[in-house]
């Protein structure tokens, strides 16, 4: 896919799955240009990397920029934005299509909107497989059924022929996971995969996701606004504010963050083990916009 000569095997192991250096995304608005992502750099290995931040911080835009799925009005630039040794910015549409689903995949927020309402769920899962593999309809169907089983759906044959409006949110998200992992990608971007779900099914979905990630040795970018979730689920955490990374920490050290914004985020969480009168509101500082 790329003409650059392959480095030694040792280096290839070291090579990150995703590497972003000074990633910037701007949107062409009616009046001027809006900078959504303003110089973000990180790399992803075989790990679970969380990106947290409040809404509007640009965390979802980062995910979509990696998939190159921003709307046409978006202007994406970077010093480097790559999957392994493939430059995502200069890749052709065809190359990108080969990457999507097969190498990099994404689980979206709400299965109610991200599943095609007029196609059966089985058809949609099978399509994900058939897009990258030349197989018969029958084999694609078998694969899809196996995958439905893998996400712990009890009667896959029945579910296969259901339409999205006939399944619950939790099952919809399992279907989404099945659909996005059926072609064995190496990188999975999960964009708030549980925030549209009932609290009771969130943990189930996370457990399934966790299993799948471990089993397949995936690199995962977990986009969320839920610090507690991220703390227990991920290895490393990137904290974003207004299109920039303010801090990167190991999930275990999350309580020791330095940046005032990160501290603010943590302090505004309610806790069961400590009595707190009133949750503080984050005190913002314009200097954060320039920092790091």
């Amino acid at each position: 896919m790329s003409s650059t000569p392959r480095a030694s095997d040792a280096a290839a192991v070291q090579m990150p799955l995703i590497e972003a250096r000074d990633l910037r995304v701007a949107f062409q608005m009616q009046r001027g240009v809006f900078q959504a992502i303003r110089g973000v750099s990180f790399s992803l290995g075989q790990e679970k990397l969380a990106i947290v931040g409040e809404s509007g911080s640009g965390k979802s835009t980062v995910g979509r920029a990696i998939m190159r799925l921003n709307p046409p009005s978006a202007i994406v630039t970077a010093e480097r934005l790559a999957f392994k040794d493939v430059d995502l910015l200069s890749a052709s549409r065809k190359e990108l299509r080969r990457l999507r689903g097969r190498h990099i995949s994404m689980i979206m927020q709400d299965p109610k909107y991200s599943l095609n309402p007029v196609a059966t769920v089985g058809e949609q899962i099978a399509e994900a497989y058939r897009t990258h593999h030349k197989v018969s309809n029958r084999e694609a169907r078998e694969r899809a059924l196996t995958m439905l089983e893998a996400v712990q759906i009890r009667s896959p044959k029945r579910v296969y022929d259901l339409y999205p409006h006939q399944v619950s949110g939790g099952m919809g998200q399992r279907i989404m996971i099945a659909m996005m992992l059926i072609s064995d990608p190496e990188v999975l971007i999960a964009d708030e995969p549980t925030s549209a779900l009932d609290v009771t099914v969130r943990l189930q979905i996370l457990a399934i996701l966790d299993d799948m990630v471990k089993e397949r040795g995936l690199g995962m970018i977990f986009i969320s606004h839920d610090l507690n979730l991220v703390r227990s689920f991920c290895d490393r955490v990137i904290i974003m504010y207004a299109g920039r990374i303010v801090e990167t920490v190991a999930a275990a050290d999350l309580d020791n963050v330095q940046h005032p914004y990160s501290r603010g985020l943590l302090n505004s969480l309610p806790r069961l083990d400590q009595k707190r009168d009133r949750l503080p509101v984050i005190q913002r500082d314009d200097s954060w916009l320039e920092a790091v």
Partner: peptide
């Protein structure tokens, strides 16, 4: 890119 930014 930087030119656009300064235009804003």
């Amino acid at each position: 890119m930087s030119a656009q930014a300064s235009e804003v």
